[in-house]
Design a protein around this nucleic acid. Structure first.
Lengths: 351, 351
DNA sequence: GCTTTTTACTACACGGCGTTGCTTTAATCT
DNA sequence: AGATTAAAGCAACGCCGTGTAGTAAAAAGC
């Protein structure tokens, strides 16, 4: 279905998305969005009334009236984002521009259960929002969890190592306890949302590779996060890369994750990064993406080695340059992305 | 950009897409599209005026006025589709429902050049359109070509084995010679369009695996064909599946295609189909799709074996059933999909 | 220093979109 | 036969982006 409300929301999101990249003018917005100048004027005035944009000076580009610069009011809306790992909970506060303003980290007990988790989440969230936060600016909380889970219904299915989590309606539980809107997604997806939200239209086809104890990816395809039929896409760690390779915990053998972890365990960094490199090269060919972002504990421990390992394995065709980088958000990428996922529910393009 | 014309085109396409699956009523269209009954009435009356739909009887579902059945006028619009292989050109005529009405096949000379090809294409197209075709119903021609090529600009880059094809603006050449709108896409993409167009909303996340001399895939993700930044996505044949495997023509080693072709060459059908099965299982995990369609000369020669090989390797989790099938379009799938790609340019959802 | 030109931006009427509220039509139920 | 139920159409409406025309503010020309 598509109606006029959809139309307006869509165009508002397009303009706001362009404004996120930095100071712009109405004329540039019209050029880059394809909207007419009048439509841009209307959209911009709506956004100014809502406090999301402000005029900030002028820019002269030749003869004629100088263009009015428009700037995002980054702190007009804020969101919290949480990363849930098997041993740790991290919550960050970000603004509309995707800047991390504050963070809190707490350990989680071994094999924690849902009530324990929700209480701990509430404690960290309260700590972050009490400080300087007028509550009307805080939009909600995003949660990046390990899969499998269902993004649409907000239910955690049965993550390995967390025995008390079978079909837990986490979004509903958290919304009730926190009194705030909550969105739930896989950690790899929130991580790629972080990159997409911050870099805007520039990033349309990208993969974020999260290398920790496992190896998962978040896919941004044609500007949208690809989640698959059951929010389960991105399970790349258990892709076969050596048909007759060593057995893996997943039951199959020769998986990327198994080979990588074996190499890493015996201290063979070159081999470990090379396996990630081959795997990423395969992805680039399969999906035809132009950006690869590396993240996760393993990568952040040896960023240069992983960068080299991946870059060395990529196809060298000059007409297909692939940009490989380490996430500038570091350990915050999953939590910050969860916050931006929530921002995008309010200010991203409607579905 | 999104304006009112976009809005109308979008809703028209939604309704027409639902009507493609078979006879429907306005009430059902409203339910399934999310549009209000009144909006559906307006859309339907537009489509009836354009000759795309007709009322055809009533269906009684209880008390009250019976629902009016609406039927797609399948032959109100027609399109031609071409498949270009290294030794053969195939052109088919399809209607709005995706039914193949007629076909023509001709051999192509070894390492044919663009002018030769365009002439041969024109000859086959003329043969098909002279017969019974009032030209106002024929919308244009779609071409499924081997990659790499650029779907947006309609330029063929440099397919291996065709030395005269370096950056050839095939879409422009063909449009000029045929006097019809032309779209160009990779053969794997047109093939998956064929499945998507025929099966409608039912098919939203699927992969079509085309096994011939090479192994390529077409990806339908969230209802849209994923082409990647440079229309080059789907090069799955050269994905590494055996790190220390035999060298491949692509310069790397242990590629799916190399291993499959080696097994097939030595007549080991079990091994060949098993390799495709592992590769497809990897894809299902990575992309979280629920439909896999097998196609291509190798598959059509041994359909049962490939079906078994793939089904045996898929994860058995009951909550993730994956439907595996052989394309019912057989050898026509690429050409028919090219025709449907052209239909979708006119009657599919606008971008 | 004044006018002209160029460019940025906006006020307003308009056509087109889906929506709302009501009416008409055509079945079944009592 | 009348009541009830459901489908579908009609008309008024609110809101969307657009087209036209106008205003504002700078540089350029003389």
């Amino acid at each position: 279905m598509a109606n006029l409300r959809f139309l307006r929301g869509y165009n508002d999101a397009v303009v706001l998305g362009l404004a996120r990249s930095g100071a712009v003018t109405r004329v540039e917005l019209a050029d880059r969005s394809g909207l007419t100048p009048q439509a841009v004027s209307k959209v911009v005035s709506r956004l100014i009334v809502d406090g999301l944009l402000v005029e900030s000076g002028t820019r002269n580009v030749g003869v004629g009236k100088p263009r009015t610069l428009l700037k995002l009011v980054a702190d007009s809306r804020l969101a919290l984002g949480a990363q849930v790992e098997r041993d740790e909970l991290r919550v960050v506060l970000t603004d509309l521009a995707g800047t991390v303003l504050d963070r809190a980290v707490a350990p989680l007990p071994r094999d924690f259960d849902p009530p324990t988790f929700v209480e701990e989440l509430n404690r960290l969230v309260d700590g972050l929002r009490s400080d300087r936060l007028r509550s009307d600016r805080l939009l909600g909380v995003g949660i990046g969890f390990v899969g499998p889970l269902d993004h649409r219904t907000g239910v955690v299915h049965y993550p390995t190592g967390l025995t008390a989590w079978h079909d837990v309606p986490l979004r509903a539980l958290a919304e009730k306890r926190l009194g705030l809107p909550v969105v739930l997604d896989k950690d790899t997806n929130t991580a790629v949302v972080a990159e997409a939200w911050r870099r805007g239209e520039e990033l349309r086809d990208a993969v974020l590779v999260l290398v920790g104890t496992g190896l998962g990816i978040g896919m941004l395809l044609d500007g949208r996060v690809h989640r698959g039929v059951r929010t389960n896409a991105g399970e790349y760690g258990h892709t076969t890369i050596q048909l007759d390779g060593p057995p893996c915990v997943c039951g199959r053998s020769g998986c990327i994750e198994a080979l990588h972890n074996l190499a890493a365990a015996r201290g063979d960094l070159v081999e470990a990064t090379s396996i990630v490199g081959v795997a990423v090269a395969d992805l680039v060919q399969l999906l035809d993406i132009d950006h690869v972002v590396l993240a996760g504990r393993a990568v952040l421990a040896e960023p240069a080695a992983y960068l080299d390992g991946v870059r060395a394995r990529l196809p060298k065709d000059e007409w297909l340059p692939v940009d490989v980088s380490i996430t500038p958000l570091g350990d915050d990428v999953v939590a910050a992305g969860a916050a931006m996922l929530l921002l995008s529910e309010f200010y991203g393009r409607p579905r």
